[in-house]
Amino acid sequence: MAHLVLGIESSCDETGVALVRVQGEGVPQLLAHALHTQVAMHADYGGVVPELASRDHIRRVVPLTKEVLAQAGQALEAIDLVAFTRGPGLAGALLVGAGMACALGAALDKPVLGVHHLEGHLLSPFLSADPPEFPFIALLVSGGHTQLMRVDGVGRYELLGETIDDAAGEAFDKSAKLLGLGYPGGPALARLAEFGDATAYKLPRPLLHSGNLDFSFAGLKTAVLTQARRLEGAACEQPRADLAASTQAAIVEVLVKKSLKALQATGLRRLVVAGGVGANARLREELNAACAARGVRVHYPELHLCTDNGAMIALAAAMRVQAGAAQPSQNYAFDVKPRWPLHELAVAA
């Protein structure tokens, strides 16, 4: 079993590198991690430019690796396993991390392991001060993904519901753009919403009463567009704040009620929330209250580990190897999977 695992994340607009230590069958320990975000670079374009993202990963990944090793007080030769994000994500960006990992593995004569980006998010709460226990329901709200999964162990995932169009993160970002807010849109909309009335606009909650656990946020985006056009030229800022608050309330209500339905349908009493949207304060507040009222434990990653990062990749690799759900390889011919459904990782119970 690998003792020191280096993780490299480069799926989109953050370059992350981390080192974890594996001690027996316990949860791996995070020794050090470093992250560079490309938000400032992409802000002028209003979104991620894939070519620029790939080039920036190339510039950052080696210095970040050196920084992590220095933080941990470890030599490069001490690494036992190199993990990287294999997918899903931007193909060019993924290739940077995969190339770096496989080059390191070949140079050190150590195995490598490609990791699913969403599995990294799903398992990231195990690095928190309040780690979960299996089994649990996972609400994955990361970028273009919104999914509810039943998780019985590492690699033992059952898809319960997912978005059929826009994901929650996309609904935040696109609504923010319609309101003339900066990039990244989600945090900007949440900040403006703090000054608004969440009941000011009656916005739709698509599929809220559908009877299944799927999501849809495209209709909400259209409703926000209609209201935003009516506010064009308005002298007062309050209506925009009210629309931001109403939009956030609609997204949060759907996420909370669908999560509660998943818990009820499975009879499980533990919920894990992971991904960038999991950092939203309103979502945490409402989930905490709803779960406390039902005797359900809810777990989140630490706030600094909600966005993409290398720690979750190193952790996921270590936990997969511990559970016997993956076998590292010393075949350094790599590929990436820009589209890769998480439930394809499922192993037999």
Rank of each mutant, 00 (worst) to 15 (best):
Q71T: 02
P135K: 00
L19V: 12
S124N: 14
D56E: 15
L76T: 12
S128E: 14
V48C: 14
L139F: 02
G99H: 04
F126E: 12
L148T: 07
V20Y: 00
P111W: 03
L64M: 07
Q38C: 11
V82H: 01
H145M: 10
L140E: 10
A106F: 02
A53G: 07
E51R: 03
G87T: 09
F84A: 14
V20D: 12
G99S: 15
L69C: 06
E25C: 04
P63F: 04
E77M: 06
L127R: 01
L113A: 07
F84C: 13
A40H: 13
R59C: 12
S142F: 01
F134T: 06
M100N: 08
H36N: 09
H57F: 02
V49T: 08
A93V: 03
G143Q: 12
P135H: 06
P88Q: 00
V22W: 02
G153F: 01
D80T: 10
R55Q: 11
R21T: 13
A32M: 06
V115N: 06
D130G: 05
P125W: 04
G114E: 11
L123G: 11
Q74F: 00
L139Y: 00
L113K: 05
L108E: 14
G105H: 06
V20I: 05
G24L: 06
A138I: 04
V68Q: 05
E119T: 04
L123E: 14
H145L: 13
E133I: 01
A129G: 15
G47C: 09
G73A: 09
L69W: 01
D109T: 05
D152F: 03
G144Y: 02
A34L: 02
D130Q: 12
V115F: 03
G97K: 03
R59A: 15
V68W: 02
K66I: 12
E119L: 08
L19E: 11
L52V: 08
D44V: 15
R59Q: 10
D109N: 13
E51S: 07
E25Y: 01
S124W: 01
V141C: 08
